[in-house]
Simulated assay, not measured.
Amino acid sequence: MTKIKVGIAGATGYTALEVARLLMAHPEAEVVAATSRAEDGNTLAEVHPSLAGRCDVPIENLDAKTIAGKCDVVMCCLPHGASAETVHALVQHDVRVIDFSADFRLSSLEVYEKWYGVKHPWPERVGKTVYGMPEFFADEIATADVVANPGCYPTSAILPLSPLVKSGLIETTDIIVDSKSGVSGAGRSAKVATLYCETNESIAAYAVGSHRHGPEINDLVSRIAGAPVQTLFTPHLTPMDRGILSTIYVRKNGHSVDEMMQCLRDQYAGSPFVNVVDHLPATKHVAGTNYVQMTVRDCGDRAVLVCVIDNLAKGASGAAIQNMNVMFGKPETMGLA
């Protein structure tokens, strides 16, 4: 059996660690290359000690042609801007790419450059790259050369909102998305706001009205549902390692919560990782997994949607493995169940 050969570009962060960890459990894929300018000469296990004894792949400062020659697919775990440059170079050498940055998620170049504050290095691909959510775009993912891996917060909002908007069960305005994330969502680099003394025994809102995932939520829900949507999104940092809980407040459009629950169950009946549940979901219910739990509660003229994911799994690296499986004709759950 020939395994899928996977490269990891930008191998030092939490998402890269999670990709490597998941791939070690994948029966038909293996990490064969890893790149990082900062850690050139070390191995993945030396940079990520939890991989000790299990992953001795060297980290090298490889050019696009070299890494493309080694791999069938590259997981690009670089920040926005730098990621698009690398993805562009890789695609020129006929290797498929799953991009973890926001560089190819949005439909509009103008919106991207406004919110990310950079000139896009590959502008002609903006709006022409498949969004990596197999629950809605599996056919396009299967043949794609580049897949835009979804944002973590957007995943927790797009999945519950899109079917309800598309079915006309909720109003498309006055949607409030209140999300809380573990500290790993801020990345591995040192920042004062994510130091232990700052986050322990505390919860804090941040980027109020200015978080870059807000436009992604609006864009993708509108794209999937076929109706323009505006949401008010506020993220919060909570003192836990991983997980996202989104509490979403919507106005009922003359329909019941039972209808909403049935709509979600119908939409995700064939989706192996999305579970519509009767209980109130908690982040512990999905920690370390690629699963999603969501439910709906009645609240007068509003309904409250609750959705939980693991930000490093379904919110990043697990979704990337799911996308890789679809790209190479494997069952979506391979290496993830």
Rank of each mutant, 00 (worst) to 15 (best):
G185D: 07
T333S: 13
V308M: 08
T238M: 12
A11C: 09
V47S: 10
M294S: 07
E201H: 14
A269W: 11
D298V: 11
G226D: 11
R188S: 15
A84T: 10
L237K: 05
H120L: 03
G7E: 03
D298W: 09
L195S: 15
C263Y: 05
V208I: 15
G132D: 02
A207K: 08
S256F: 13
H213T: 08
V97I: 04
N61G: 07
D178E: 12
R251A: 01
A148F: 03
L280C: 13
S50E: 15
A157F: 11
I175S: 04
V208R: 08
M24E: 14
D178M: 03
V6Y: 01
V47C: 14
T172Q: 04
A282Q: 15
H236Y: 05
C55S: 12
A193P: 10
I244C: 11
V57Y: 00
S167P: 00
G329H: 08
A205I: 07
T333A: 11
T333P: 05
A64M: 06
P134I: 06
P49C: 00
K166P: 04
N42A: 14
T234F: 02
A205M: 14
D219S: 06
L109Q: 10
P123M: 07
K119I: 09
V250P: 01
M324F: 01
P272W: 13
A193W: 14
V165P: 00
A207Y: 03
E198P: 05
P27G: 10
I98N: 06
N311W: 00
K330V: 10
D63F: 13
K114G: 03
S202P: 08
S50D: 15
T155W: 00
H211F: 11
S107G: 12
V91Q: 08
V286M: 08
A157C: 14
